[in-house]
Design a protein around this nucleic acid. Structure first.
Lengths: 195, 195
DNA sequence: CTCAGATGGTACTGGTCGGTTCGATCCTGG
DNA sequence: CCAGGATCGAACCGACCAGTACCATCTGAG
């Protein structure tokens, strides 16, 4: 069956489908933990199609990481923006969302940070750095809204807590990592608001 | 020159030398970023010697990670124990040491965490988990000495800060990650001591 | 002095992996 | 109905890599 069974020919959709499916597989197995052949088999796509859309395996990896970063940032942004105006509530919602992620069976740490550890190249590290930057912007917004005297400092501390909780949840398996990071975050927030 | 230039034949020493040199190279290049052939060339060792000592490349990797974990834990333990009895001073010394590490040109994040991201196998993950566990023990000692009502909770939060600072320092390049994590740690410590 | 063991150097192997190519088949716009 | 593009499946290639084998050479103990 040269063309996807019932689906119409639509390169954009094919590409999006590949990216979406590859995101899961590459997160689960690691960037180098699966070859292009097996990857294509999993995705139900021929190698030629994959290479026509992404050029190289690295091309696919970059596309996957870019869209993953987008999805994560949007997910967290939505979580925060739909939890009211109070910074404390926003942080609680954010860390609660993270905790839910940690509790999932497929949790394997932050895909972007992991990717940078695996492919220590400028391109991948740049994607990871940009992801962290956007994460920081989100937290800076909360810190500013809280009226912290040094919102950038507070935001960076919140970022440290969020990333640290992710690492600890991954390697210590503590189901409380998100909750404990949340408590710490609220304590820092309260201190910043008092001054 | 079949035997190392001036050095005596001493398998134990040879093994230790290989582990020491490989630790740096594998940290810098990544576990899969260098082949056995090039690795041996860098170490000034023949492949046969390497395989006689470690069996497989994985064997070398495990030995490297084990000793690296030992070194890091001892380094931090010494840093803490040589900074007096007050928990606040101990934490300050610990995070100051971390900040010094972050500032080094060769800094690439935590080697153990990175390794687990690269080789997502039971063996490597177990080494990383054990490393985190020992890290936590060190911090639990400080938390207990501080008289925290829930030392395990405080220790886990300190661990989150330490690991988070390492990640942020790696991917955000902030020279302040260690300092800001330290401030947050001291705030949590003070709160725990008050109650 | 001699011999066993440790080591270096080199060549080789079997397998895997990224990437290419080709022909056949199926959609879709005109 | 037809032409062009998208896709599949499979074969293929060159490179690289982990691991093995062999031998010459060196060290150190007795």
């Amino acid at each position: 069956m040269p063309v996807a069974k019932g689906s119409t020919i639509d390169p954009e959709r094919t590409r999006a489908t590949i990216v979406h499916a590859a995101t899961q597989v590459l997160y689960e197995r690691g960037l180098d933990g699966i070859g292009v052949a097996e990857l294509c088999a999993r995705l139900g796509v021929s190698k030629e199609t994959l290479y026509r859309h992404f050029g190289t395996k690295d091309g696919l990896v970059h596309a996957v990481l870019d869209t993953r970063s987008d999805r994560v940032i949007h997910w967290l942004t939505d979580t925060v923006s739909s939890s009211g105006d109070r910074p404390a509530d926003q942080l609680t919602a954010l860390f609660r969302a993270l905790q839910g992620w940690y509790d999932g069976r497929e949790f394997r740490g932050c895909a972007l940070i992991n990717a940078a550890a695996q492919h220590h190249t400028d391109a991948v590290r740049a994607i990871a750095a940009r992801h962290v930057e956007r994460y920081l912007e989100l937290l800076t917004g909360i810190a500013k809204q809280a009226g912290a005297d040094d919102p950038h400092r507070l935001a960076l501390q919140l970022l440290i807590l969020a990333e640290g909780a992710t690492v600890v949840a991954d390697h210590h398996g503590s189901a409380r990592a998100g909750e404990l990071a949340c408590r710490a975050a609220l304590a820092l927030l309260a201190a910043a608001e008092r001054s």
